[in-house]
Design a protein around this nucleic acid. Structure first.
Lengths: 296, 296
DNA sequence: CTTTTTCATACCGAATAAGTATTAATAGAT
DNA sequence: ATCTATTAATACTTATTCGGTATGAAAAAG
């Protein structure tokens, strides 16, 4: 089917008058006549009955008009949807995050969803380690993970920083408000997590302990922050975790904010090349992340 | 959107290789490159990511490919449906008929429906007079009506001929087997129908009576053949009707086939110009009506 | 019978598409 | 590191299509 012939025909079918239809199409009448003839040739049928005075649709023309209108509407709708995709107003955004961070992200997410209602958000919880993989492979668009992280070729932005917190069972009677206070903890058990899950975070905590000349007696390793808190609650030991690990948890424990230590836990967000998913650009805008990001 | 650009794109999206896609499209590679560029310009977006070795779809391209395939399939389906219409294999056929004729028509109709299952049949019962109007105006395609008829500009075919029948109440004791026998009827009431409903038929019957030197004493006029039969059954009079007026009726009457009279009742079918509805042509073929029809 | 309306045809120039030859860039091989 | 092969883009030419002007034909309106 030629360029605009179907469109020409549909307009003509509305007007049932070559001259008027041509005017509407901003062309002259002869090209329109020929276009319709071509269409009729291609479909091997008469679409219009011209009896020198009146133009009427044949049954085939009637049908073509009906279907053609739908088809053309479909075409233009498709075009506009494509444009939406390009401008990141439609599509999918796959976000991965470490569990404890969802509450901090929520306000941004809410704003984004209100602004881009046609974007389908996919959120999954993964370990720091897994997220790096997903983003590198393009299966996720942006990951919120606990830094610091060493990943080549990914864009980095420090989304959020917060102090570490020492968590102890309720029955712990001391106070920890300066670095020397760590000494009281020497004979207590320590609950940790496997280093491979989040090397940066693990090393950061180790550094804190070293600074305080505190050498934790690790007896348990668990995989989730909230499980650490539960272990502490049961009196099985103490731990140092990022503040947000306590978000939304009701636990009968004591907490000591380690804000007298310069080390802070950082939630970084990592993402791949912007061009891969236009939605990502708009999401970053909502996070107030400028496009000039640091590459490692 | 230009001529084939969408199709070009969809094939390219299948191949993800300009050279191969061009081969599949029976064009060379440069025109394809340009076609895609044009499409991208029109949609103001990148549809493909070319990294010198591999071609991959962007999200927008992915979407366009999906919708585009559907759209193109729709387009070609539309074309083939149009062709079906032109060849009378799809569409509507509006048949009108006088009630008494449906049983004679049924075998043809059955065959036609089996052969053209996509054709929607519309049958309505009308008087002779009304049918002429409907066919002239194009609201019906073909009408089966009781002739003879004088209608300018319509195509005519004598579909079926049958003898007239004299119907009398059960208690009539005579016999009518030759023209002189009509004399016995002189003193009986006659049940007729208004002349304007079917002038030709009415006049034919009048002619029969004149021939037999029988001058019927009309006391009732009713509008339907079956009502005439019922009136006769009740002993209210006699009547002369076409044979098929008795089809499917169980009536306690006496009947005398008037086959000693040359006059026959004719069911004519009338129809408008063939081009108005391609289905009509196929229907006429099923009726074994050649295309060379008599025009009045 | 003339005029007007309206679609079709003939012809021309402009725009667009396709082909050929070549370039640029990169991946893989030597 | 250099060379070769692959692949898409670019430059340029040719062919096709498209739209415009002028005109014709047929029938309705005055």
């Amino acid at each position: 089917m030629k360029k605009n012939n179907l469109y020409y025909f549909c307009v003509l079918a509305d007007e049932l008058h070559f001259g008027n239809a041509a005017k509407k199409l901003h062309i002259t009448q002869p090209p329109l006549s020929r276009a319709i003839q071509q269409l009729e040739e291609e479909l091997e049928c008469l679409l219009l009955k011209r009896d020198q005075r009146n133009v009427t649709l044949t049954p085939a023309g009637e049908y073509l008009k009906q279907r053609g209108d739908v088809l053309l509407a479909n075409l233009s709708e498709m075009k506009s949807e494509v444009k939406k995709i390009v401008h990141g107003q439609k599509g999918e955004l796959h976000i991965t995050l470490v569990g404890s961070i969802i509450q901090r992200l929520m306000p941004y997410l809410k704003r984004f969803i209100r602004k881009y209602p046609s974007v389908k958000i996919k959120i999954s919880q993964y370990t720091t380690r897994e997220q790096i993989q997903l983003i590198k492979s393009g299966d996720a668009d942006i990951g919120f993970l606990r830094g610091p992280i060493f990943a080549r070729g990914l864009n980095l932005y420090d989304f959020y920083k917060e102090p570490f917190v020492l968590v102890t069972p309720r029955h712990f009677k001391g106070t920890v408000s300066k670095i020397e206070d760590f000494q009281q903890l020497s004979n207590m058990s320590y609950i940790s997590f496997p280093r491979y899950l989040a090397r940066g975070l693990h090393d950061q905590i180790t550094r804190i302990c070293n600074m305080a000349a505190y050498y934790p007696h690790v007896i348990h390793e668990v995989h989730q922050l909230d499980l650490i808190v539960r272990m502490v609650e049961c009196g099985l030991g103490i731990s140092i975790i990022p503040q947000c690990g306590l978000d939304g948890l009701l636990a009968d424990i004591r907490t000591f904010k380690l804000d007298f230590i310069s080390q802070q836990s950082v939630i970084s967000c990592y993402f791949n090349d912007l061009k891969d998913n236009p939605v990502l650009g708009n999401f970053l805008k909502e996070l107030n992340i400028s496009k000039e990001v640091h590459k490692k």
